[in-house]
Design a protein around this nucleic acid. Structure first.
Lengths: 349, 349
DNA sequence: ACTGGCACTCACAAACGCCGAGTGCCAGCG
DNA sequence: CGCTGGCACTCGGCGTTTGTGAGTGCCAGT
């Protein structure tokens, strides 16, 4: 009707009311009523006035009543408005800062960093945490090693600059003396060393073409495994922690059951999509609220995620998953801070 | 009194009754009464007789009543007797055999084998499955590689015969030309190649002593990292799957909540202890029932576990965790079969 | 535009009573 | 002596009822 944009139809006080509702509901986990609102927040009006405001907010779809004559609860849309416009990122407490700093002492290798990170995230946010291992597709080749296993088999070991290591067995077309293996090794390293994995497919082709004819079949066998390792099987690894937090606040937090959630959490693909850094600006911290996320069974959850990597690059994603009713400002702050720290650690290698 | 051994006090029929109670309870998840028992099993006596038998079984601690005037439920002790004496291992169904065979196609490397295995176990048993990665301490060194990263840093990569790969960064005491690194590499491989990891500590010491004096400080730096990698940090990796199965049959399955269970499952140490192959005969399939296991929070669960490895060796453990009320014969059969299969696959490398 | 007042709604908890499965005991029977 | 049928008893679970209070929407008044 006479209203222009949806947001325009809400004056400042209504926004204050929404903010207060979100905060109270997140804190108490109970529907919040008009009377309680005026008491806990110093809104300078009467409950009746608030009720009118709430009626409007409900019309606009920002809040809803679980049942007649109960207080109001924010909708996904309400949380979205809250996150976008009504909240400031909460600074970390000193205790949190200390915890983040402490977690890295003694991290001995990449696996260790990732595992510690995911536990840290879970502990700080008291939610389920997910950390993607540095993605192969985003790293470069540091070194390739060929280890003879028998005369017709070698083991291919690839070391990425992120510290990730992949190994694969290669069946050679025939017995190959060790000297030849060394020649292959040199050739492969000269061609691929330092290259980004994304660029390797065509280089591998060159590699075969440039090999001396005698060794070409052997190199071809090696090349096919290389391709598989470097590209096709860009298997992403993932670390998960804090699933026990799903049971906090009664199982009823997630209406129905947490069964589907646990199932979804075991699907790597699903997790990758959630914290996927295939986003416009991967370094930004993103928030997906309720049914904004695409996984059917996680419609009752929100995800806060971000990319991380040494310096300003992004080699993987990390994030946190919890009930839509969660402390967004605090969680966003934590996830961002942890990602920044991990980036610094990675930069040190 | 007049009774000799506890087991002696139970005649055959009482044992039949216990077996029937376990079977029915596992199937229905409800306390089983005397009348239902005589109907479902062709015990040729009347309910009243069964009641007397049940009274005895209860005195002996094999079953109990959840409350007066309810049916009986097996106790941990009852399950134990059932597993030890009253059940035969259930042969696998053809469908199960097929599933096990199918799961391995396309397993591309060790990680993949382990991940597929754990999922397979979870799916077949419909419980939580745990698989330990082949333990470093039980494997031998296949190859050690030194990759120069800068003039004062090299990356140490260890490849075990099980296919596991560990890498670690070594800070050298000073700039070291590549030729020296090669010499170190040769020396290290000659000394440690093919050796069991358990034997390496003293060998590493020899290694330093035998090094030409000029390279000795460098070798010392390398040796300390080697020791750490090979011995001290015998970090065991573990794969987990099927946590969603914990929610089957209502959460009430695990009285209280499954919170502590989820928490325990995130502790690697706990899991290792559970499926630990530090048992008398690690290749045997073991069953821990209820409070027989030592982890406080898992007192309501049972664990079926076994060791696995190529041939008749054991390089790690795997197992399944579920409510004490579980299908022991079937689960034992499945776990054993899967372990055997995985052993065969590992033997192929 | 805000407020106080008021009638109304409805989830939730406590109280109640019923039902029936299951038991223990006992006297009788082969 | 072991088994059986009969019987009185127990008690958890379930559906119904009732009471209570938080919270609402509406309206008349300032």
């Amino acid at each position: 009707m006479g209203e222009e944009g949806v947001a325009m139809s809400l004056d400042d006080r209504k926004l204050d009311v929404l903010r207060a509702i979100v905060q109270d509901y997140v804190a108490t986990q109970e529907p919040v009523g008009s009377k309680a609102l005026v008491e806990r927040h110093h809104l300078r009006v009467s409950p009746a006035t608030i009720r009118n405001d709430m009626a409007v907010l409900e019309d606009e779809g920002y809040i809803r009543q679980p049942h007649t004559s109960a207080g109001r609860v924010p909708t996904d849309r309400g949380y979205r408005l809250f996150v976008d416009k009504l909240s400031r990122i909460k600074p970390l407490t000193p205790a949190e800062r200390r915890a983040i700093e402490r977690f890295l002492v003694g991290a001995v290798d990449l696996d260790d960093v990732v595992h510690r990170t995911v536990r840290l995230l879970a502990q700080l946010t008291r939610q389920v945490a997910v950390v993607q291992f540095p993605s192969l597709s985003r790293s470069s080749v540091r070194h390739l090693e060929l280890v003879p296993v028998s005369t017709t088999r070698i083991m291919l070991v690839m070391i990425a600059d992120t510290g990730r290591v992949e190994q694969r067995l290669v069946e050679l077309p025939g017995p190959t003396p060790e000297a030849d293996v060394l020649r292959l090794r040199t050739a492969v390293n000269e061609k691929l060393g330092g290259q980004r994995l994304a660029d390797t497919p065509r280089l591998v082709q060159d590699l075969v073409d440039e090999t001396e004819p005698a060794l070409r079949p052997t190199m071809a066998a090696l090349a096919s495994v290389l391709l598989e390792t470097l590209v096709e099987r860009t298997e992403e690894r993932i670390a998960l922690a804090g699933t026990a937090n799903l049971t906090r606040g009664g199982i009823l937090d997630f209406q129905g059951s947490l069964r589907p959630i646990l199932e979804a959490l075991e699907e790597e693909v699903v997790l990758l999509k959630l914290i996927g850094s295939a986003e416009p600006d991967p370094a930004t911290t993103r928030v997906l609220i309720g049914d904004e996320n695409e996984i059917e069974h996680l419609r009752a959850t929100s995800v806060v995620s971000t990319g991380y990597g040494p310096g300003s690059t992004v080699v993987g994603g990390m994030g946190v998953l919890g009930p839509t009713r969660m402390d967004y400002p605090g969680t966003i702050a934590t996830v961002s801070a942890v990602a920044r720290y991990v980036g610094e650690i990675l930069a040190q290698n």
